[in-house]
Design a protein around this nucleic acid. Structure first.
Lengths: 227, 227
DNA sequence: TCGATCATAGAACGCCGTTCGATATGTCGC
DNA sequence: GCGACATATCGAACGGCGTTCTATGATCGA
């Protein structure tokens, strides 16, 4: 059983999502396709279990992280750990938190972040929303950044740099009057680092969270901070 | 051509992602599978074009929205419009912004948000990161919330409420000492509204953004707001 | 009327997830 | 030692998928 999902994870890591087929997995295990169905009733379940397996690893990493005094520092550290894990295994994002019944470790992760949120004296609703926001952001951005590059990059026809260069050229060719923003940021995009991009957005959320901390429920709705 | 992608969108809207097959699409159009390949070289391209088609509709909606004085109010309004569109069509999230070459309207959407970000006197880097964060969050959360419910809910064996009820029961059964956060928020989860959840997280980002507005580049790194 | 181009159609291919019945491999009560 | 029964393995077969290919209609300027 453990063997099966470890082989599945290995396949996903080595050759991506499309490489995980029952036939390929059976071949790797030196057995028949039918055998896999003894341990797993479904491909969905296989993926859920594979995901939960690596989330367990993430949790173990978090275990070795010692608590900072500031809860927000802790949330930041957890978020960055999760993000790094997804970047390393882009297939994770799509299955993360899809099924908390099977993925018990996902629930554990919620708890870890939530406990830090509670230390900020947030109301239940605020805490719930805060954790959802952080994890939603982490997974969303990671999924976006970790998506499979276009075919031409995969097969080596074009380097990643050349591909990004083409996109940049396309943007620079846009009408500057119609697309002031695109021209404003194109240089930034050209030399951008995915991890920086992620961290900056995370800081926005954390800054918002700090404003909310310990202000009590009714000061919470950001409506009150408008205008 | 237009007919083809409109039929594809209709299929996706009516019966979800798995219902869009070349055979089903051909049947709906009253033709053969081969014909579709005349207009589209690929299923990926079909999905990209379908996505771009509905993003065009979103942009049209934004067109009818009149500008507020506060750029952040505008960003909020755009984000909520996009979110609502994805909730209505869960399949959108997965393909959004996958290919800006074909999806020229996605680029347009970037521009719309970016122009508001520029009005906040952000540096190019800040503006770039802000737009990425907002869209990453919107798509990430929408994808999460919009994911296909489990099979039992789809086929009507279990109602959505009963399913959520079971999850809630599972959470309540957790050891309160080990899972203080889960118990803290379970009531909130039970009666939660997806749109509220989304909005709350968005406000965190917007609050962070407002702090950044007009403070110049070096005040930007949230490092400086730590501790 | 005749090529050339545009457009359609569906059989065929290879791969996929999944099902199923046949078949070993232990592990008991007796 | 032996039948009985759960545990585990296997690969052929099924239906559905994306995609390719070849054959066939339409349309129309020359």
């Amino acid at each position: 059983m453990e063997t099966v999902i470890e082989a599945a994870v290995a396949l996903l890591d080595e050759s991506g999502e499309s490489a995980l087929t029952f036939r390929a997995l059976a071949a790797r295990l030196g057995g028949g396709v039918g055998s896999i169905y003894w341990y797993v009733s479904n491909k969905d379940e296989l993926l859920d279990r594979a995901t939960d397996h690596v989330v367990a690893g993430i949790l173990a990493d978090l275990e070795n992280m010692r608590d900072a005094e500031d809860p927000i520092d802790n949330i930041r550290a957890i978020a960055e750990t999760v993000f790094a894990a997804i970047v390393q295994r882009p297939w994770l994002a799509a299955y993360f938190m899809r099924n908390t019944t099977i993925q018990s470790n996902a629930l554990e992760l919620y708890e870890r972040i939530g406990e830090q949120a509670m230390r900020l004296d947030l109301s239940p609703r605020q805490a719930f929303h805060a954790v959802s926001a952080v994890l939603g952001y982490v997974i969303g951005v990671a999924a976006d950044l970790g998506q499979e590059p276009p075919q031409e990059v995969i097969d080596g026809t074009t380097s990643r740099e050349a591909y990004l260069g083409r996109v940049v050229d396309q943007w620079r060719a846009l009408d500057a009057a119609k697309y002031p923003y695109m021209h404003y940021i194109v240089d930034e995009f050209e030399g951008h680092d995915d991890a920086d991009q992620f961290r900056s957005g995370l800081e926005l959320i954390l800054a918002g969270l700090r404003l909310q901390a310990g202000r009590g429920e009714d000061a919470t709705s950001a409506e009150s901070s408008r205008g």
